[in-house]
Amino acid sequence: MALELPDNVVITKLDEMVSWCRKNSLWPMPFATACCGIELMATGASRHDLARFGAEVFRFSPRQCDLLIVAGRVVMKMLPVLQRIWQQMHEPKWCISMGACASTGGVFDTYSVVQGIDRFIPVDMYVPGCPPRPEQLIQAIIDLQAKIQREGTMYGREFTRPERQLPSRALRQ
């Protein structure tokens, strides 16, 4: 005998509901070092309005954030700062590497620029472009939301799966 449900009751898995909550209230930590930072500001400003995707609450304290957006090149002197900030953020947390410099070093194949932050910290989403247009960053956030919805679990088990333990290019090579 089928159970009659009223229209305003939805049955779902708890994991999915938690992920749904998480993905729609990402609080970004803008680690804006260079040019991409200006585009990050433009993404938050009136025309592109990141608030439409629930990720407009920029907080400059890593303790309050769950999405690290690394916008711009990271150099030798800055990398320890970046790693410290990543470690200070609470789980569950994600990282977007915005722009060519953060992802690969970009045009700056020089003595002091780190050739991609994914050598030293985990990265979930890469945004190409130098700098990426605001629309690209918004697309990355939408993709990240889909990823959170797809594999998110209430206790963050997705982070402890073996393949997620290989975060960096350095280890994969």
Partner: peptide, 29 residues
């Protein structure tokens, strides 16, 4: 020095037309 990326060293390895792309990223405002 938290953003020292070696622009001047790079200028010695790019030609006069190529380096203009790097000057974009100097004062990016």
């Amino acid at each position: 020095g938290y953003l020292h990326s070696g622009f001047e060293k790079l200028a010695e390895h790019l030609d006069y037309n190529q380096y203009v792309t790097v000057t974009d990223r100097m004062n990016y405002v």
